[in-house]
């Protein structure tokens, strides 16, 4: 019973939105529903934030190893939250200076802006930059060609990598611009690394990606139907009381 009503809600909403895709007067209902979702997600922060607080407080009160870091997380969290919600240090909107809170919350020189500019942004960018190291270690380990598939992966990756850098000009730029067999239309220079990279991207990568996307579309359709028809109802939780 606890699952029946949600299943009905889910099914009706889903099938109605599938139908409205074909009715011009209601075709916007899907976008409106998704904009409401953003509001729900904003309120859901109360649940997530509450959970974060609970986990960190538990660590501190149980004096688990590393509880000091939990305290640091909490302090950073509360400072940022207070400063952002109260718009500390934010000047009012130039057009309406008598309204003290009319400025943008991310206005330059506000405390929240400082946290964003000097903590949040550099840390995100640095985590992103770590990928340069990770991608090299992944390449180094994965391309120890153990089977045919890995060998293909390795060879193609090397060709594309070289083709995208100056090394391609240095290594294969000397391939002559003449036709191999009379008027066949293939030149020696077509096999230089740069052109080879382009050929690989256009003629081999694109069909692969297309087939993956076609498969994904059918997978999405099937998953959506299973959810709407109630065939897969695991996301709703259980029928019984725990």
């Amino acid at each position: 019973m606890k699952r029946t009503i949600p299943l009905l809600i889910s099914a009706i909403t889903g099938f109605v939105l599938i139908g409205t895709a074909f009715i011009p007067l209601f075709v916007d209902w899907g976008n409106i529903a998704m904009s409401w979702f953003n509001l729900l997600a904003a309120f859901a922060f109360i649940l997530g934030g509450g959970n974060l607080l609970k986990m960190q407080l538990q660590k501190i009160s149980a004096q688990q190893p590393g509880w000091g870091y939990a305290a640091v997380t909490l302090i950073a969290f509360f400072i940022t939250l207070f400063v952002g919600l109260a718009k500390v240090g934010v000047h009012p909107n130039v057009k309406f200076p008598e309204f003290a809170w009319s400025g943008d919350y991310l206005q330059e020189d506000g405390v929240f802006w400082w946290l964003f500019e000097y903590i949040f942004t550099p840390l995100s960018a640095t985590m992103f930059a770590l990928l340069a190291f990770y991608i090299s270690s992944a390449a180094f380990r994965a391309f120890r060609a153990k089977n045919t598939e890995a060998t293909i992966l390795l060879i193609i990756a090397v060709i594309i990598l070289l083709g995208r850098t100056y090394a391609s000009v240095w290594l294969t730029g000397w391939f002559p611009d003449e036709f191999i067999i009379g008027e066949s239309g293939i030149k020696y220079s077509d096999f230089n690394l740069q052109n080879l990279s382009e050929i690989i991207m256009e003629d081999f990568t694109t069909p692969g990606m297309r087939a993956i996307k076609i498969g994904i579309a059918l997978g999405v359709a099937s998953t959506s139907l299973k959810v709407l028809l109630g065939v897969d109802r695991s996301y709703l939780g259980s029928d019984q009381e725990a």
């Binding site: 949600p6 889910s10 099914a11 909403t13 889903g14 895709a21 899907g30 979702f37 959506s224 709703l236």
Partner: peptide, 17 residues
Amino acid sequence: RWPLAFFIGATAGIRLI
């Protein structure tokens, strides 16, 4: 569960199309 069901249903319908 009701709002979650609403939005998961909406997601399923919209993404299918």
